[in-house]
């Protein structure tokens, strides 16, 4: 049984003046148990919609989404128990402290404060987050620190499937490295399956078992990173991941992260 399986998933949104945007176009992919799959794509390519569809926040128009063999559209509550998500915007109650936000998040999954507190301490130690700052309001913390708390919130619920939607976008290099190291540890220590959406080529190559390229709602390719690069080889020369991305999408790395939705 796969941790995640999507078959022919389609999703369109109607914009004002009747314009229809096809966010997902016959998307099919699988994530095996304990596997990390990366999806590279420019902003607006459909990565966030893909994550929202899997996390039951957006209903697909067509196709099937299965999490550990359970249909996520028909039985959302059942699949929600086994997954969690970290998105590019660390959404929290900004006036509440990191600890208050974490305790609240844990309770939504049936984890009491008494159970959560030692676990929070352990996670915060692991990610190098000073315990004393956990009592400060979220709005006093840097983006990097907020993102670490977002990862901690997801991990607190012991998910077996983690959906990471650009978790390092906009972070300073140090925070980025910390978060990436933490993702590596999650994978090793918790044997979680991870879907990582990003437009950071190095991150995808370094952290993922397989890497896909997404463009205009379609998955153009999804393979081990070396295989993927070889697919776009020219004159016997294997390109870098950046060159592979440019060849597949027509976007440069800068354009990929700058292009609006």
């Amino acid at each position: 049984m796969k941790a995640l399986e999507l078959r022919g998933v389609e999703k369109s949104f109607k914009k004002r003046r009747g314009e229809v945007v096809r966010a997902l176009d016959s998307v099919s992919l699988t994530v095996g148990k304990g596997e990390v799959v990366g999806i590279l794509g420019p902003n607006g390519s459909g990565k966030s919609t893909l994550v929202r569809v899997i996390s039951t926040l957006v209903l697909p128009d067509k196709g099937e989404v299965e999490v550990f063999g359970v249909d996520a559209t028909r039985h959302p509550k059942q699949v929600q128990r086994s997954m969690n998500r970290v998105s590019v915007e660390a959404s929290f109650f900004k006036k509440l402290s990191a600890m208050e936000n974490l305790l609240y998040g844990a309770k939504l999954y049936g984890v009491t404060s008494a159970e959560a507190r030692p676990r929070i301490k352990e996670i915060l130690d692991n990610i190098g987050f000073a315990q004393k700052r956990a009592t400060e309001p979220m709005e006093h913390l840097s983006r990097g620190m907020q993102q670490k708390i977002a990862l901690a919130r997801a991990l607190l619920t012991s998910p077996v499937l983690m959906l990471l939607d650009e978790p390092t976008t906009g972070l300073d290099p140090r925070s980025k490295k910390d978060v990436q190291a933490f993702i590596r540890r999650i994978r090793e220590a918790h044997d979680s399956s991870i879907l990582l959406c990003t437009h950071d080529m190095g991150e995808a190559e370094e952290l993922c078992d397989r890497v896909g390229i997404m463009m205009d709602g379609k998955i153009l390719a999804l393979e081990e990173s070396e295989e993927l690069k070889r697919r776009y080889a020219t004159n016997g020369r294997v390109p870098t991941m950046e060159e592979t991305f440019m060849a597949a999408t027509g976007y440069s790395v800068e354009e990929a992260s700058a292009e609006g939705d």
């Binding site: 926040l57 959404s91 049936g110």
Partner: peptide
């Protein structure tokens, strides 16, 4: 409304409680 502004409504809606 508060949850919508903060963006936490997505986390509420993807939690397994009813």
């Amino acid at each position: 409304q508060w949850e919508r502004w903060e963006g936490t409504i997505e986390y509420t809606f993807m939690s397994p409680t009813s």
